[in-house]
């Protein structure tokens, strides 16, 4: 009985001390982490619309059951870009991205935020810079992935077709959403376009 008590007490002592260490570290690091995450996001957004002086979140949208947000970038009072976070299903992960479009809902730029695609193959979507460059200036109907050289559409990276498709689909979903919200006058067949 006495031994039981001793064992229990020693375990409790360890739990308490260890718990205190963890809570202490958490309280020191969590504000730092929170700030770092916020700053990362702001910097990423800024990169999408360098000419803007305020970028404000205006709403949420979702793909399937995952939630993403979208933003308006303003320079003075004039809206210069709409920016949406989005994602596409890739080979081994969701490729998370930021997509910015101009007032005519043409793609201004695409930035990959986070992915866990295969090193050496899928991660070429970042390393091969021409791939993301292609999206610039494209409008919704041009966002189709081809496996051959193209000026009009998007060319897939050979060896990274699935990851290329993930990016294209993610961008497409975001652009479609932005057209529905801001497109107004733009008439585009947003349905029945093959993915």
């Amino acid at each position: 009985m006495k031994e039981m008590l001793k064992i229990t007490l020693s375990l409790v002592a360890i739990f308490v001390v260890a718990g205190m260490i963890m809570v202490g570290v958490f309280y020191v690091t969590s504000p730092v982490r929170f700030k770092a995450e916020k700053k990362e996001k702001e910097e990423a957004l800024k990169k999408m619309a360098p000419e803007a002086d305020v970028i404000t979140e205006v709403g949420k949208w979702n793909i399937g059951r995952k939630h993403y947000d979208y933003h308006e970038a303003k320079s003075g009072r004039r809206i210069v870009a709409y920016i949406a976070t989005t994602a596409g299903k890739g080979y081994s992960s969701y490729v998370k991205m930021l997509v910015s479009v101009d007032r005519d809902i043409r793609v201004k730029g695409v930035q990959v935020l986070d992915h866990a695609e295969t090193p050496g193959l899928g991660d070429q979507i970042i390393e091969e810079e021409w791939f993301l460059e292609q999206f610039k200036g494209k409008e919704f109907s041009q966002l189709a992935l081809l496996k051959k050289p193209t000026k009009e559409n998007i060319q897939a990276i050979s060896g990274a077709t699935i990851s290329s498709r993930a990016v294209t689909n993610g961008v497409k979903d975001a652009v479609q959403m932005l057209i529905e919200r801001y497109g107004g006058g733009i008439k585009v067949a947003t349905h029945g376009v093959k993915k």
Binding site: E3, K6, I7, S10, L11, I14, F15, A18, I21, M22, V25, F26, T29, S30, V32, R33, A36
Partner: peptide
Amino acid sequence: ISPKVRIPAYMFIIATWVTVTDLVMGA
């Protein structure tokens, strides 16, 4: 530490230090 409960105790200690590493690297 009593030898009878050493493994759970060690696991807990390891988990604590891993949590610390995780939190620090995350920040």
